[in-house]
Design a protein around this nucleic acid. Structure first.
Lengths: 181, 181
DNA sequence: ACCCGAGGTTTAGACATTCTAAACGTCTGG
DNA sequence: CCAGACGTTTAGAATGTCTAAACCTCGGGT
């Protein structure tokens, strides 16, 4: 773990000198120098102090590129199972009496412009896989666009719904665990 | 910073004893105990070793609720060629580190004639959806043929595997709850 | 040229902490 | 009741953090 370079960048971004930072974090400037050159390594408590002085959390500091969701697109061919058109969207419950099971898989079909009803606040997690089309997943106050072959996964306690943002019908395979019905 | 409780939970989730973890991380069980009871605090290097042994990154470990990094993942795949010598089938784990979630979605691709390794006997239930091709689901001593758009659902305690019975590659979206890894 | 101050580096070493080793609890199954 | 698995506690060593202070290096002013 080489954290020196990262610390230095953060300090410079904050427009501080090593001494400034040392004072704020109750350390010595020499020690800051050692840290930035990886000549030593801070204790967790000290690192916390330093990051505190820089307005950064441990979680942010250790967030790696791997954690960043760098999208890698993959495409796959599929077919849309039949469905009759309703005012906007159609739910097909794939498994009978799924509420007695651990998972509830549903096939969601949305006409262009249509949305599912917002739900949220219940226990569990949900998984989705886009079979066709392009859909916007609204999750809390954020929106994620997913295309054919994309998938998503999130805790079900946050308010969420799907909206067909494209011009063609969209089909999503949606799995909730545990079933919320 | 009280990390003991979090460490303990991670260890138990991984199904390890303190001694197991100590061995993996090249430490002593006594020390693990101290950590879990917040009687001491690890160096960063040591914490890294421990988390490594648990399959968790520092970023994840320190991720606070406040950071609330969306657990949503788009277009992410980790392709894990299963049996090395075994030609023919490919598992793509759609959600990173899904073993910490309630469901484990996997994309299974089978070349013509290929089979997955038989598994069974574990807790939970499994759900599958055929995205392309035609596949035989072997479940106990019975075989069910599923085509594009078909789905299946069964308890995971029975021995089961998939075999591509067609002449074209097959793709199946497979979801296990709870994850069996 | 010189000095000066700001920013940074290096050093030796005091001290605090991590971490080990081993003994000691506390369960549970046989 | 014993044996073994699992966890806790303890004393102490080894390690590494962190301080204090001296030491660079660069620029600008006079």
């Amino acid at each position: 773990m080489k954290i020196g370079e990262r610390l230095r960048r953060l300090r410079l971004q904050a427009g501080l000198t090593q001494e400034d930072l040392a004072n704020r974090a109750d350390l010595t400037k020499g020690f800051i120098s050692q840290l930035e050159n990886d000549a030593t390594s801070p204790s967790i408590a000290t690192l916390e102090d330093i990051l505190n002085a820089l307005g950064v959390t441990l979680g942010e500091f250790f967030r790696e590129d791997g954690d960043r969701e760098d999208p890698v697109v993959f495409r796959r061919e599929e077919r849309v199972p039949s469905g009759e058109s309703e005012p906007g969207f159609l739910l097909s419950f794939l498994i009978p009496r799924a509420h007695r099971h651990l998972m509830e898989p549903v096939l969601v079909e949305l006409d262009p412009g249509a949305s599912t009803e917002p739900i949220g606040g219940h226990e569990g997690e949900e998984f989705g896989f886009v079979l066709a089309g392009q859909v916007d997943l609204h999750l809390g106050d954020r929106v994620h666009r997913a295309r054919k072959g994309d998938c998503f996964y999130y805790p079900a306690d946050r308010r969420h719904w799907l909206k067909n943002s494209g011009k063609r019908p969209v089909t999503v395979l949606w799995v909730a665990s545990p079933p919320s019905f």
